[in-house]
Amino acid sequence: MSIVMILFTLLGGITLSAQSSINGAFSRKAGTIETTFLTFITGTLFLALFILFFGQGNVLGILEAPKWQLSAAFLGTMYLLLTVMAVPRIGVIAANIAGIIGQLVIGLLIDHFGWFGSLVIPLDAKRSFALLFMVIALYFIYKGNKRSSEEPS
């Protein structure tokens, strides 16, 4: 089961990367805020259709859900705004890599302490090594991107 979930989530990452290229192309003509706005609107429309045909939950449950769970909607916007603030000062690559490190460290901490009622998965030696290898990977990506941007293409 967990392998299926991991493959499924890899697919989520793949679509996210395609999304940022596509949105990048669109925002050059339309603007950043306009692109994000359009992304959210079309996403809402597609989901409205999906829910009509495949929804098994309860959309109106939103009205009864605890407010702290609903506050997550602002986190996505916070991510965008903070990234937009950081990029002009340190560049796209450094901002993305710092963002990924924040995401990984907090993800492992949430699992370790079981915050927000999620699964409790202790941060053991194996997980610490996994984090180390992710940091090594990010270092190589930084190096690799730096080298390709220095080479004339």
């Binding site: 986190l75 950081a86 963002g99 924040g102």
Partner: peptide
């Protein structure tokens, strides 16, 4: 700021 931006994504995932 960039580190905080990334953490926001993990918090979002856990809460959702």
């Amino acid at each position: 700021l960039a580190l905080l931006a990334g953490s926001a994504l993990s918090f979002e995932g856990a809460i959702y």
